[in-house]
Structures are given as C-alpha cells and as structure tokens.
Nucleic acid binder design. Structure first.
Lengths: 182, 182
DNA sequence: CCAGAAGTAGTACATTCGTACATGTACAAG
DNA sequence: CTTGTACATGTACGAATGTACTACTTCTGG
C-alpha cells in the first residue's frame, strides 16, 4: 500500500527527509540530490513533486512549523491544568531546549525568514502562539516578554553546551509574568 | 599609499566586503567571486590571502564580533554613568535593534556556530560580555537572564517589522534585573 | 645590481548544482 | 483493448563554485 505508486507517501517522505537534513546541513545546504538520497527516491522525483528547490525547502519548514504548533497545543493544555504557571513553563522550556535538532531547525527558519520575507509568517507562529497561550495568565506585554525570553533561551542553548538550568528559567519567567503586578 | 601594493589593506578590504555581503546573501551565500567583486580585487587574491573559503568566512565573523565587542564597551560606559540601569539598557537595546544588518549578521553567526563548534566561542562573546557588564548591577543569574532576554529581542526584531518598543523592553529588563530582590 | 621572496592577476579544471527532458510504466475511463 | 493521464526514473546540460596553477610584477637584502 505504501509501495511504489503512492504520490502522497512519496511527497511526505521527501519532506521528512528534508526535515531530517536541515539540522545536519542547514537550510542552505539542502540539495535535490541530498533529499533524494535520504528519502530513497530518484533525483527526478524531487523536481516532479516540487517546482523548485525553494518550494521543497518551504514545504519542509512548513512541516517543521506544523510540528511546533502541535507541541504548542500540548503546552497550552499543560499550562491550563497546572498550579504554578512559571514553574511549569520553565520545566517545559527546559525539556524543549534539550532537543537540539529542533532548536537548530527553528533557528534555521529564523535565519531563512530574515532573508525571505514570505517565510516570516511561518517563523512568527511559535512566538505568537506562545504569547497567546500565556495571555491567559498575564498581561499582553508580560506574555510577549516571557515568549521573547524563551526564544532567547533557545538561542543560548544553540551556542552553549549546557542550556539554562530550570531554576534560572523559572525565576526569570516568574519575574516577567509578574511584572504587571509590580 | 593605499594603492596596488598593500597586503594589509587588501586583506582588510576583503574582510570588509565579506562583512557587507553576509547580511545580503547569508554566510552560506558567500563565494570567493562575490567577495572579490565587492572588494574590487581579482579572484586570485581571495585564495592567496585565505587558505580556504571557510577561513575567509571565519575572518569576517571574527571582525563582526570585534565590532560588537567595541559596541559592548560603549554600553558598559553608558551603563556605568547612568542613573537608571534598566531604562538605559532598554534604550540602548532599542537603538541596537534598529540596525537590521547587525542583527542579521549576528544571527548568521549563531546559525553558523550551531553547525561549527569552533565558532561558538566567537558567538558567545556578545552574550557573555553583556552578562559581565550587567553583573555590576544585579546577581549573576539576573544579569544572564537580562542578556538572554536581549538576545530574544534580537530574534524578535528579525521576523517582525516592528521591533519591541522601548517601554516593553524597560519593564521586562527591570523585572529581570530586580528578580533577586523579589 | 641582482637574486629570491612576496604580492598580483588571469585562467583552467574538476566537481556539484538546479533543472529540463525523454522514455517508460501503471492505472482509470470509454 | 485502447487511450489518455498521472507517476517514475535515468540522463543530460549549462551555470556556478572552490581551488590550483602559471606567468608577471614589485620589492628587499646582500
């Protein structure tokens, strides 16, 4: 059923292969041949299913954004039923920062979006979504500030062997989310 | 005097050209020919002065880091003689965020460092330096948290047309820097 | 003045790339 | 069965790239 003749599956495999490759070689390191080899499809398939390499890259980044949005839904649920929002958010962030491939992929998306404006809405999904999730527990400014801090922590984890510890995250997020009260 | 025969000058010009090009085409978009054309030198000069393209890129990123470090010195001085640290830091950051080319270049460095560990010390200069500067006004944790937030704001400015406003920055930084007191 | 080193510049080459294309295969509709 | 259409695949090609190389010029130390 998932054999040769299966357009949807093939397309999905190539996007998945591209997603795997982005953390390894970067967005600009992607090539048709690399994706084809990883996906186990002939070179021609990559041009048959994607009008250009940019399209393939965009599809892969869109898929990565989709995965991130799913994760965001889980965060929302977790935050909703927890007692201590800053502590829970800190714990979620700490776990997240350990998934290095996701961090690298997301930063690649940021870098790509900096050069290609059409990718910016995609890049904004995470920060805007997190801000919206946090809006239930703090003012608009505080929610956005906390989201910005989480993104800063992402960047930090990229270039430091040890990401920020959970306690630092918790204290910082508590300070930011509570800043309207002060 | 700065005419044909002037090795130091030529090297400097090529590095400067590479720095100019990074915000335009990205680190991975750099080529010998692009740098040579921008610097106004023949192609051969780029391989005569740099063992490989990676060396050229590394030299350009090192130069960008040098410029950033100089800017950091100015921040330190400004913070030292000001009355309100969070407000001053917020104002400095707001100005900084408007220099889009610098933001893009710095994010390119982060992305490059994520893939090439030897660049990480370079990428850490800014965040570590800022943390050190702020250590005079808050605890180690708070100083680092504020620096991380500033980096988050950098990322935010990359993908949003309007960077964070000064007031948001000030409130957030005040909350983070004062979090030990709470 | 005169080697040899250092710098300059143009060109060549193997490789890799994105993409086009010709050919072949499977399958649904008539 | 025939035919048209979507899918599959191998190959080809022009363009661009990193780098090596050769010839030439300028400078420096003896």
């Amino acid at each position: 059923m998932t054999g040769r003749r299966n357009p949807g599956e093939r397309r999905r495999r190539m996007i998945e292969a591209a997603c795997e490759l982005i953390p390894e070689v970067g967005v600009n390191g992607l090539t048709h041949r690399l994706v084809a080899a990883r996906a186990g499809v002939p070179l021609g398939a990559t041009t048959y299913y994607f009008a250009s390499l940019d399209d393939l890259v965009a599809a892969a980044l869109a898929r990565a954004a989709e995965v991130t949005e799913e994760g965001l839904g889980l965060w929302s649920e977790e935050l909703e039923r927890c007692a201590d929002v800053p502590a829970t958010l800190a714990a979620l962030t700490a776990d997240y920062l350990r998934e290095r491939d996701r961090m690298v992929t997301w930063n690649e998306l940021y870098a790509a979006a900096a050069h290609r404006p059409e990718l910016r809405p995609l890049a904004r999904l995470w920060l805007d979504g997190l801000t919206r999730s946090l809006s239930g527990y703090a003012g608009a400014r505080a929610a956005r500030a906390a989201a910005v801090f989480v993104d800063g922590a992402l960047l930090y984890s990229l270039i430091n062997d040890e990401p920020l510890d959970t306690e630092s995250l918790e204290r910082s997020l508590a300070a930011l989310l509570g800043m309207d009260a002060a």
